[in-house]
Design a protein around this nucleic acid. Sequence first.
DNA 1: GTCTATAATTTGATAGAC
DNA 2: GTCTATCAAATTATAGAC
Lengths: 199, 199
Amino acid sequence: MASTGTKAADILETAENLARNRGYHGFSYRDIAAKVGIKSASVHYHFPTKADLGVAVARRYTDRFLAALGDPRDPKTAPRLLLARYAAAFRKSLVEDRQMCLCGLFGAEVAVLPAPVAAEVRGFFERSVEWLQVVLARDGSGGAVDEAESRRRALTILAALQGAMIVARTLGRVEVFDDIVEGTISSPSTPLTAGMKAD
Amino acid sequence: MASTGTKAADILETAENLARNRGYHGFSYRDIAAKVGIKSASVHYHFPTKADLGVAVARRYTDRFLAALGDPRDPKTAPRLLLARYAAAFRKSLVEDRQMCLCGLFGAEVAVLPAPVAAEVRGFFERSVEWLQVVLARDGSGGAVDEAESRRRALTILAALQGAMIVARTLGRVEVFDDIVEGTISSPSTPLTAGMKAD
DNA sequence: GTCTATAATTTGATAGAC
DNA sequence: GTCTATCAAATTATAGAC
């Protein structure tokens, strides 16, 4: 099924897909093995414990997510386009992949995560907020752009999008996600939904 | 441990506390039995299947949550006070109980919930949005108050608060929750944080 | 209503052959 | 690196005595 790249990469890819639908305790080494086409003992060879696997999956997810967003300081890309790209990333996973954000789901389960996995999820949120904060500091349309205010707005956008995925998935309505994006990001002037479906 | 009321009530109370920290698949009949002081077979007597238990827990949670909020149409209570009360309910569960919103966590796990349980979570979101919508329609400070706009703002508040609990819990910082509330609800005029710590 | 006992399955993980 | 075989523990759930 997932047969691109090395075995370790296939395992990570499969584990991520399972985790984003079922949560950390919702997938097993046997689930992964069956999808990759090996035995569960072979999965343990690559990732000795489930915490090891969880850490690897979360780190890979975070790196890939941020890389896809691009440099928040790139002068060639308008801040509001970057914001639209951020929302579009979540929307794509919701609509095309029909999956949660890995760290949104893991974050909800943080009390039952092994400590090293929880630390990775924390890293995703911290790096996400930092990325958004840089973008928001460049965007003057929202008013004040001091440190505290841009951080607060970054946290608000992150939280709203994570919540939007949960509510939209549960209600089975994509429009709910779009409504929340509209209500959160594009308060000042231009609606962001236009550029959102791109990419 | 949970020894108020009937056995069935103790089971529901215990199950809710476990579910709000560990998620639907993160607690077992034995966990509940041990805390209540009976055997797991006795839990099955009251709630034959785990789906039965999940439905009962979610419905009880939803009813209690909405009852605590009060009538959104009550002319004696200002809309903005009702909004503050809504945010305060989540804040209390975050700070005092150190627990997630049951339906926020279940919503994140919706793909692995038995269908009847998922339906109850949907009910929580629908009733929450309806409650917020009524309040927002009464509150003119946000500008337009037409049906579509108030619904969109209701969804946005719900999503932001659910996301806020996840992010604040994962980062281990209550201030993060407060920042998001500030950035979501009290955009127009008066800050809501004042009345938030009450109740 | 609560218990003992147990079934049937699944889980994460390891030992050791190849 | 991958396999077979296996372990110890945990899971939901049921049968039947009291």
